[in-house]
Design a protein around this nucleic acid. Sequence first.
DNA 1: TTGAATGTGGGTTTTGAGCCCAATACGATG
DNA 2: CATCGTATTGGGCTCAAAACCCACATTCAA
Lengths: 161, 161
Amino acid sequence: MPAPTTFIQGELKRTIDDRFRVSLPPEMAQAVTDESGSTIVTKERFGCLSLWSAAEWQARQERGVDVIRSKIEAGAMDQRWGEVQRLGRLLSTRSKTVQLANRSRLLIPEGFREFLGVPAGGEIMLIGAVICVELWNPATWLEALTQDMPEFGSLFKELVV
Amino acid sequence: MPAPTTFIQGELKRTIDDRFRVSLPPEMAQAVTDESGSTIVTKERFGCLSLWSAAEWQARQERGVDVIRSKIEAGAMDQRWGEVQRLGRLLSTRSKTVQLANRSRLLIPEGFREFLGVPAGGEIMLIGAVICVELWNPATWLEALTQDMPEFGSLFKELVV
DNA sequence: TTGAATGTGGGTTTTGAGCCCAATACGATG
DNA sequence: CATCGTATTGGGCTCAAAACCCACATTCAA
C-alpha cells in the first residue's frame, strides 16, 4: 500500500445544502482523491462517515478481497458460502466509490445520508483524521470528543513512543 | 463449478411495482443471469430473497447433492431417510428458476412474495453479496445490519487469513 | 367462450445526479 | 484602502434512469 501522501489535518464546520452536497476545502479534497478522481465514502459509526483516497483504500481492502476471490476459485470456500455471503453484504453497505464534483464538492450518496443523521441544510463537522477525512454529525462529534478527549494524552504517548 | 465472474457489490433502494416487478441495475442483472438467460430465486430467510446465476447455483447444489448421494450409497443414510426426504422437499420449495424480462426486470414469483413480506408498491433493498444479489425487506435488513455489522472485523479476518 | 386475473411490453412523467456558471464572501497583496 | 484571485454557495439546465401507467397477451376457470 502506498503511504499516505499527506497528513490530513484540520477541523471545520460546513453546511450540507438542500441537495446533500458538501464542499470540501481544497487540501482535504485533494487528499482524498486519487489520480482517477475517485474517492471512497465509508460508514464508520452512526453519525460519522469517512472519506479516503480510492487508490489507498482499495489497496488496503482489495488485498483482502483478492484473497477471498482466489479462495473461492480454489474451492476453499465450499463449506463457507454463508459467511462469504454475509461478509459481501457488509462490504456492500459499508462503502461506496464516488467522484467529487469540480474536484471539491461531495454529494453524500443515498443510504449514507440517514447514517450520518444530518438533514438537508444541516451542519456537519469536517475533521482531518490524518489518514482520512471524517464527516461528523455535530452532536455525535461532541459526544465522541468528551468521551475521547481524556484519553488523548495516553493515546498520544502510546502511538508516539 | 465455474468461479463467479464478478464480485457483485452495491446497496440500493428500489420499489416493487403494482405487479410485483423490480427492475435491477444492469450489472446486477447481468451477474445473476447465465448464458441461457436463467436466474434462480431462493428463499433465504423471512424478509430476504436471493438471486443467483442459474448455472452457478446448479453446479453448487449438485455438489452438495453428490455428497448426500454418496453417503446414501455408502449406507450412511439408512437411518435417516426421513431427513433426506425432508431436505428434498425443502430444496424444491426453496428455489425457483425465472427469466428476467428485458434482461433486467424481475417478477417476484407467487409464493416468494409473502416470504419477502413487502406489499405491491412497497420498497426493498437490493444488496450485492459477492456471489449473489439479495432482496431485503427494509425492516429486516436494518435488523440484520445492526446485528452483523459489529462482527465485520472478525469475519473479515477469519475469511482472509 | 367469455371474463377475470396475471404476465409482458412499451410509453410517459418525474426525480435526481452531473455539469456549469454566476453571485458572494473572504483574504491576500500591492 | 482598492483590487484581484480564490473559495464557497446557490441555482439553472440537461440527461438518464426509475417510477408510474396503460394497453395488450396469455392463462385458467367458470
